[in-house]
Design a protein around this nucleic acid. Structure first.
Lengths: 227, 227
DNA sequence: ACCCTAGGGTGTACGGCGTACACTTGTCAA
DNA sequence: TTGACAAGTGTACGCCGTACACCCTAGGGT
């Protein structure tokens, strides 16, 4: 009897590639990229590790599948807008997707060959450039210039040095002012004005992303206009 | 006797943090980033794995040390030049260092907090901006815009799709032309002109890097001039 | 001449990982 | 009823990082 109920409970939702991917994404969402392991994921699904291999091939394929889930969340390009607005909006949409899944950018970076889904996304971004009047050559360069920004992220040198109480951080940095004088100069700015999301050494990541994005897009527009 | 000789041979060059780092860099240079393991490295040094821990603490510290070795290879900034030339030259020097150690960029990306050596490098790059007439705010934005480019690399969406014979690659791509129409448009360019290092879907990575670098630097110069 | 200490190198062991391979079990067609 | 096929299981292998207790040797204080 009891065993029948158990079996029923287990069989209620049979293992599926989709279900595995959903569970993996959920697991990574709450535990970060390094918490994804076949064993941990199997446990989360109430199943033995090897069961997963009937649906995903290997771990790399799993990671690819997870990336695809995130990329699928990116909005379609808007219509009836110039190339720059279209590009900009779609990239910001991609960024929103990546912010919902903070593990995704590091997984994306680590992947060698992109998945067909990612390639299709890239291809459609190329289309935006071409329809916007870019030559094929310039579109090619543009794609390289954009780099990972086209997927909504850009690798930062520091991750935001948060997690330290603001005043303590300030003190540490003023102590280090003579060894890193220029970095130290950033502190008075943030502490002094002391408003908005810029606290401590941290900064408004969203602003910085859009700043860089616009700088690049403007540069490309200039080149396009010159022909 | 024999044992004495063995011991002598082993003791000839006693284990040292420097020696470990040199060996690790050499190992990664020839085997790639994923070939670095404490066990493998110990074996390379003719020593038991745990011996390393008397000198490096743990694997993360080892990786940090390896990064430092590479960063130390970057030339000092040139003198008596405007900020853009200084920046440009130093970044290209960094890129040369990273090309000598292809594993380094991925290790750099994977690291959370940068090492003091890296921080010092970043600080000195900030100094170049400031001495070039950037306000502190604009310098701050500029550092974000540069991102990893300041260390001589930028993450590409594909790694160069090399390793496939050129004509075969062309054929594959023309077959895929209807599913990735815009990517396919890149092929005739590379194949058609057929000169320089641009073969197949590949492209001149160095050119693309400098193209993007200059686009960003020019954009920043414009902002600086406006004040 | 003795011991003592400290530090570098060792050996063993633990818990985690990805996954190959042989197996049971449940389902449905013939 | 049987028999094939797919889904899930169990066991095992070879990697990994590293904690911990050990030994061995060189150097210094007595």
């Amino acid at each position: 009897m009891a065993t029948k109920i158990e079996e029923a409970a287990r069989a209620r939702e049979p293992l599926t590639r989709e279900r595995i991917l959903r569970a993996a994404v959920a697991l990574a969402d709450e535990g970060g990229a390094e918490s994804i392991s076949m064993r941990r994921l199997a446990q989360e699904l109430g199943v033995v590790p090897m069961a997963l291999y009937k649906h995903v091939g290997n771990k790399d394929e799993l990671l690819d599948g997870m990336v695809d889930v995130v990329v699928a969340e990116i909005d379609a390009p808007i219509e009836d807008a110039d190339w720059k607005a279209t590009m900009r909006e779609r990239i910001l949409s991609a960024r929103r997707a990546l912010l919902r899944h903070p593990w995704a950018s590091s997984v994306l970076e680590s992947r060698g060959e992109p998945t067909p889904t990612v390639i299709a996304y890239i291809d459609s971004m190329m289309g935006v450039f071409l329809e916007g009047g870019f030559s094929i050559d310039l579109m090619h360069h543009a794609m390289h210039v954009m780099g990972s920004r086209i997927l909504g992220f850009s690798q930062e040198l520091f991750d935001d040095a948060a997690s330290m109480p603001e005043e303590e951080a300030a003190e540490v940095w003023t102590q280090l002012a003579d060894v890193y004088p220029n970095i130290a100069k950033l502190i008075p700015v943030a502490i002094g004005t002391h408003e908005g999301p810029a606290v401590g050494v941290g900064c408004d990541t969203q602003f910085e992303f859009e700043f860089g994005l616009d700088l690049v897009l403007d540069g490309l527009e200039r080149l396009r206009a010159k022909g």
